[in-house]
Structure formats: C-alpha cells, structure tokens
C-alpha cells in the first residue's frame, strides 16, 4: 500500500507542474477560443534568457526568476500582436498555424542564444528530500503545488471580483456585445495573453529549478503537457486545469511505475483519446460543449 500511495504522491507533485501550465493555456483558450501553439516556446524564451544570465553572471535566483517571467511575457505579447490580434474573427485555423510558425521562430532564437542540448539552472531548495513518515516528498514540488493553488485562487478572484475579470468574462460570453458595452476588447485580450504568459513563465521557472537543468525540449514539452492537461480537465476552466494536471501526473506516475517510461506516454495519450470520445468536455466540462464550442454567441474557432 505504501508504494502505491508514494507513486500517487509523486504523480500529484509532477501533476502540479502540468496544472500550472494548463492554467495559462486555459486562460488563453477560454478568452480567445483559439489555440496558441507558441505557449511553450514563449516560456522557453524566458527560461533561456534567465539561463543565459545565470551562466554569464551568476545572479541570485530571484533575478533569474524575474527575467524568466518577464521574457515569457514579452514573447507572449509578441505572439499575440503577430498571430492573434491582426487576424480577425473567424480566422482560428490561420491563427493556430501562424502561432506554429512563430513556435519555430522562437525555438530557433532560443537555440541561437544557447546552442547546447542542456544547461544548468539554479535550484530553489538544493534538491533535498523531505520524509513525512513513510513517504518522501521533494520541497521543490511542494512549492509548485502551493504556487498552483495560490495562482488559481488569485485567478479566480481576478476573474470574479474585479472589473478586468468582468470584462474578460463578458468577452468570453460574446465579444461583439462586450465591445458594444464599452469594453476595449483588444486591450483586454492583450492583457489576458500577457497574464497567461506570466503564469507560464512562473510554471517554467519552477519546473526548471526542480529539474536543475534546462533542455531544448522545453518548448514542445510545455505546449503538449499544458494542452493535454487542459483537455483532460475541461476546456477553459480553472478548476478543470488543476484537476486535469493532477490527473495526468497520477496517470503517468502509475503507468511508468507499472510498465516503464514508453508506456507512460502511451497511457496518457490513450486516456486522453478515450476521455475525448466519451466525454468531449473533459472531466469538469459540460456536455454542452459537444456541439461545436461557441456556436452560441462566440466565434467558431475552426473553419473559414
């Protein structure tokens, strides 16, 4: 029983990083109804800028964290200006492909900055282990879990208790009506995008400091894990992102424990596939999503 609980705990810990990534994804998708494939590579730009600084000058860790978050916010704003703002309503596929093209661009820019496959990254805790009774946990991941919970609470407050959040929810409901009610749709979307990139930047920093290294796979990894966690949990919902992230972590930990690393990814994809077929809205989604999301009031993100 103890090994089982330990594996579940490990899964929850890793899952908190997926949850954090999914949180930023859910915010962008929830507001724009568009898929931003450049989400991971934006995080990568921030992380690589932080790493570059760390290798060259060895500044204190909080400076690296600030640079990483600022870098991914900058990259996120660049993506929004180039791929999302100029393409009007109804060009969802073009936005997605455009964000993919920028993915290639950001990744190459990162590799020009730091060409090797992996680099060291400063750790927050020194990578020690804590034992709680019979169980072992890593404080790095406890920080991540705490950050995920704190950030989702803050995001919920922001969405439901502030004017900015009200505007954002109005846009989600119907962007045309929102703009007629005097909400500056473009500015609000840009802010939401920057906020999502900042959440991604924090997630990236925490994951890298737990791993104590940064690799060239970061962009792809962040996009895929965030996307899968969001889809498992429920499209564009904050509790969904958390549940999806944690569920993905637990599924991966158990299947790796039972069958090895290749089957770990296979199991994650198989669960995702079956879940989408049986319950397209995700664990916490409603079945109302089934008939084309956004056919009521929103813009269809596919087609024309």
């Amino acid at each position: 029983m103890i090994p089982f609980i330990q594996t579940t705990l490990d899964g929850l810990m890793v899952g908190s990083s997926y949850g954090l990534l999914a949180l930023g994804f859910a915010l962008i998708f929830g507001v724009m109804r568009r898929l931003n494939l450049s989400y991971g590579p934006s995080i990568m730009i921030g992380a690589y800028l932080g790493t570059l600084l760390y290798i060259k000058f060895g500044p204190p860790t909080y400076v690296v964290a600030i640079v990483a978050v600022a870098g991914s916010v900058m990259a996120g704003i660049y993506v929004e200006r180039l791929c999302f703002a100029p393409l009007g309503v109804g060009a969802g596929v073009a936005s997605m492909v455009s964000s993919f093209a920028i993915w290639m661009q950001l990744e190459q820019a990162s590799l020009l900055m730091l060409p090797r496959h992996s680099y060291p990254f400063p750790s927050l805790t020194g990578g020690e282990l804590w034992s709680l009774g019979p169980f072992v946990v890593r404080p790095d991941y406890l920080i991540m879990l705490a950050a995920m919970l704190a950030m989702s609470a803050a995001l919920t407050l922001l969405l439901y208790r502030t004017r900015f959040g009200l505007g954002l929810r109005a846009i989600v409901e119907n962007s045309l009506a929102a703009s007629l009610s005097g909400i500056d749709v473009e500015r609000t979307m840009l802010k939401a995008f920057a906020l999502a990139s900042a959440i991604g930047g924090v997630a990236g920093f925490l994951v890298l400091s737990a791993n104590q290294q940064v690799t060239a796979m970061l962009g792809m990894w962040a996009t895929l894990k965030g996307l899968i966690a969001m889809m498992i949990g429920g499209l564009g919902s904050i509790p969904g992102a958390i549940v999806g992230g944690l569920a993905l972590g637990v599924i991966e930990a158990h299947s790796q424990n039972l069958f090895g690393p290749q089957v770990r990814d296979l199991a994650a994809y198989a669960v995702l596939f079956v879940l989408l077929v049986l319950r397209p809205g995700g664990i916490l989604g409603t079945t109302a999503v089934r008939r084309g999301m956004g056919q009521r009031g929103g813009d269809r993100w596919t087609t024309t």
Partner: peptide
Amino acid sequence: LPTLRLHGLQFAIATLAFAEAVRILFEL
C-alpha cells in the same frame, strides 16, 4: 468512427493523441 462526432479543438487533440499513441506503439 469515434472521433468525427467531435469538433474543432476536441477533434484536433483526439487525432493528436491517436497519432502519438501510434508513434509510441511503433517504438514498442
């Protein structure tokens, strides 16, 4: 058969999950 009832992002991600699963199956 199972996926074409889905729409938009859900269809896209379902096909992604299938393709990655196929890739891993070929690894095995």
